[in-house]
Design a binder for these strands. Structure first.
Lengths: 343, 343
DNA sequence: GCGGCTTGTCGAATCGGTTCGGCGAATCGG
DNA sequence: CCGATTCGCCGAACCGATTCGACAAGCCGC
């Protein structure tokens, strides 16, 4: 079922069928309709590979996700879903490619096999080999997260430094004098994971600014690690009454460990985080958090990429998001009687 | 950077380069090595579209996911991740396609544009238009879930009827005399969602077999609905002490509502469910559940599909999984003093 | 009534691979 | 030593679309 067959049945040439479909040249209304009838009858659709070969573009974008070993956070999941949806709206298909670990064949196929017109890179590191690779191949791309220093690329990111700083200020406003940061996993941060590093900076800066004690902890991305880190904090810094975190996956463990220790949230300990809104509300009490607009990010990432594919030479655009903190029930005044705050 | 360029630089013909790469005809070791050197130097890789056009296969499989409106359950998420990984191992790429709603253009592109060699369909309905469509197009596919009656397709599914029945038996063994089923959302079940319907059947049959009261409830796939359904159950059937569920998304709400009502799990109410193992353990107390091996399912689905692509004419295979129930802390004896059970 | 313009259609080239038939040279057996 | 085989490589056709140049027919103005 190819264009030649359609042409034969409609009694016209193949080029006429092509023009009737694309509208790139005038075709008389009569023949156009006749061709359309034949096409509808056989429900023909042009072969994607042939078209891609000739046109030099695939109408497909690549979504480069972290390898399966790393479980996706809720935020990332929302992001993937919204990318797929936004792409579908733009009549683009999405090719999924796990990268990192031993799956780099998939990424290489994507890039040098010219399977996609552009790519969206998740979980960018401060030094990221994939960015170098894509740039060398001349493939348009948009990063979720940004590399160090280098602004010569398109990206969209959440301003973790500011968000964590806000959490610290919020806790300080409530009168907390000793706070802890629960960061992402040691492996992630060690390999130059931007959000982790920037969160640590923002945390330290804000604590210093407010003149309160700030202790930063790394924590694996799972429930058990969440429990463990709370135990460590209680042992090493029992004076801590406020916690800021960007580790979604550890949250259930954090909650359970506090409960086991007989500590009430927010009466004894306040927690403010960065997480997907829907997820934040599933806790008891619901988590005060900066709700990352993952869906909006997915949509914008696709828009940015489409733009870049159309005009690869334009100066790259960046979007840095700083969503407001939604006050929920997991934060409260530092000490039962007093409320207000210094500064 | 095409095969002609490689041939020119290596001083051989294009066909020789092709044969050197594919090994489908003998090429002398000397020329083969020389060609390989040129290729390595320019890091050339064959254009995927051109190859697909000539070979008639794309080395890509489609993963047809429920549309973005429906949030993926943890189980489905694990499944997607494992499909991507298994495909990568088989050197296949994965094209994501949301289907249902108004995104059917994407699905149509996949099917009639010949963009993929085969497809994996998630969330199959008892009557599923996509199955009909794929069969008509002659595209190999594997379903996650199976249609009614018709066994003329490959699928892999979880035996929800048996699992829910097991939950009921487990509760009955513990002495519970009135149990409730918390099913998936009314919309899903109304549109012929197999697991929902089969779970209801298995629930009713098992309750009847054990001579206990069984009340089935539908429940939206979110926290708020979970709370609501517990309130309804308490109002309409306060005698219920055992709950079986396959609604992962409602679980947090169920837990919260029971806590608010002052009901202790498992002392006052026992809960047994079907859920992803890791997720089940994040509850307090951890959920007794049949742990769906989503990762294994993803891997097997890919294997099944690869098989089917290689030999489309072979009789279709089915895999029906019935994972054992892992006892965790959310189920216990029906009444505080007594332990044992009738039968 | 004829050159020039528009309109609608066609034929052929092209994209970048794979694969088949063929051909010269080397190798082998008798 | 000669015919038959094997080996290694080449040229050309082909996959199914798009697109450019060309060409015939119809219409205009002068």
């Amino acid at each position: 079922m190819n264009i030649g067959e359609i042409a034969r049945r409609a009694g016209v040439s193949r080029s006429t069928v092509s023009y009737a479909l694309s509208g790139k040249r005038a075709v008389s209304e009569a023949t156009r309709r006749h061709i359309q009838d034949v096409i509808d009858e056989l429900d023909y659709r042009p072969n994607a590979a042939a078209r891609a070969l000739k046109e030099g573009r695939t109408r497909t974008i690549g979504l480069v996700v972290p390898p399966a070993g790393t479980r996706l956070t809720h935020m990332q999941l929302d992001f993937v879903a919204s990318v797929v949806e936004a792409a579908a709206r733009a009549d683009l298909d999405v090719l999924l490619s796990p990268s990192g670990g031993d799956h780099d064949r998939s990424f290489e196929r994507l890039v040098s096999g010219r399977r996609v017109d552009g790519a969206i890179l998740m979980e960018i590191r401060l030094e990221d080999a994939r960015v170098t690779r894509l740039r060398k191949a001349g493939l348009p791309f948009v990063g979720i997260g940004h590399t160090a220093g280098d602004d010569d690329m398109c990206w969209i990111d959440v301003d973790y430094a500011s968000l964590i700083a806000r959490c610290v200020h919020h806790l300080a406003d409530l009168g907390h004098r000793a706070v802890a940061l629960i960061n992402r996993s040691p492996e992630l941060v060690a390999t130059g994971y931007g959000p982790g590093l920037r969160a640590a900076e923002g945390f330290a800066a804000a604590a210093a600014e407010r003149g309160i004690a700030g202790h930063a902890y790394l924590c694996g991305d799972d429930t058990a690690s969440g429990r463990a880190v709370i135990e460590r904090i209680r042992a090493e810094h029992p004076e801590v009454t406020g916690i800021a975190t960007l580790n979604e996956a550890a949250l259930p463990g954090i909650w359970h460990a506090l409960e086991d220790a007989g500590l009430h949230v927010p009466r004894d300990v306040s927690i403010a985080g960065v997480a997907a809104a829907q997820w934040a509300e599933d806790f008891r009490p619901p988590l005060t958090s900066a709700d990352v607009p993952a869906q909006q990010m997915g949509t914008q990432a696709v828009e940015l990429l489409v733009e870049r594919i159309a005009a690869p030479a334009t100066p790259p655009r960046h979007i840095l998001l700083t969503p407001p903190i939604s006050l929920r029930a997991s934060t409260g005044p530092a000490t039962p009687p007093s409320g207000g705050t210094p500064r």
